[in-house]
Simulated assay, not measured.
Amino acid sequence: MNITHLEHAVVTLIVQALFGLAFGNWFIGGVMACCWWMGREHAQAEDRWVGRFGQGRRANMPWWGGFDPKAWHMDGLLDWVIPIVVAIVLYVVSLVIGA
């Protein structure tokens, strides 16, 4: 685990809390933040695929290039999995306390 995982989790909590407190919808704030991290990490996986298998040209990448497990690593996975777990925990807490 590195500092980016913690940073992503904190930003997710902030976005989720802002939406939860402002609009009373704790779910959508968490979903928005988590989708941001998932999209970001997917784009980085596409870039890794192009660098490794596409001779540096995006045009050489098939549609599934960003989903290729060879383009992913544990750090990239944790960059979006940890914010999802944190957002779920905050959402459940918000349901329990009735916020």
Rank of each mutant, 00 (worst) to 15 (best):
V92I: 15
F53T: 03
W26R: 04
E46F: 08
N2M: 01
G66S: 14
D68M: 01
G20W: 01
R52N: 13
G56Q: 09
P69A: 07
I88Y: 08
A59Q: 15
M1C: 01
A33M: 02
S94F: 04
D79G: 02
M38C: 13
E7C: 04
G54C: 01
W80E: 02
W63H: 05
M38P: 01
F67W: 14
V81C: 04
W64T: 13
L78D: 00
L18F: 12
L77T: 10
W72S: 07
Y91S: 04
G20D: 02
I14T: 09
N25K: 05
I97K: 03
W63I: 13
W37L: 01
V96T: 10
G24Y: 07
F53S: 08
W26H: 05
W64Q: 10
M38H: 10
L77K: 05
Y91K: 00
L18Q: 04
F53C: 08
T4D: 03
G24W: 06
M1D: 07
C35A: 15
R57L: 07
L18V: 15
V31R: 00
I82V: 15
V11Q: 02
R58K: 14
R48F: 07
A9M: 14
I28V: 14
R40F: 15
G39V: 00
G39P: 11
A45L: 06
A22P: 09
V96K: 02
G54H: 05
A43M: 04
A99L: 15
R40Q: 11
V50G: 04
G51D: 12
C35W: 11
L18N: 03
F53M: 12
A22K: 07
I14W: 02
G65M: 05
D75E: 13
V10F: 07
G54Q: 01
W63Y: 13
Q55H: 13
R58E: 12
A43K: 06
A17G: 13
E41R: 02
L13F: 12
L77P: 07
W63R: 09
V15D: 10
M61Q: 14
V15T: 13
F19V: 13
N60D: 12
P83Q: 10
W63M: 10
I14V: 15
G29D: 06
H42R: 03
R40T: 03
A45Y: 11
E46Y: 10
F27G: 11
H73G: 14
L78G: 05
R52H: 14
H8D: 13
Q44I: 09
H42S: 05
L78V: 00
N60F: 08
V85S: 02
G65R: 03
R57F: 08
M61P: 06
T4C: 01
G56H: 05
I88M: 11
R58A: 05
N60G: 10
E41K: 06
A22N: 04
G29S: 03
V96P: 01
F67K: 04
V15Q: 08
I97R: 04
A71H: 00
Q55F: 12
D79Q: 09
N2D: 05
W72P: 13
I97L: 13
V15P: 13
Y91T: 02
A71D: 00
A33N: 00
I84P: 08
H42D: 01
A87L: 06
V86F: 12
L77C: 10
Q55I: 01
V92Q: 07
D47H: 11
D75K: 11
K70P: 03
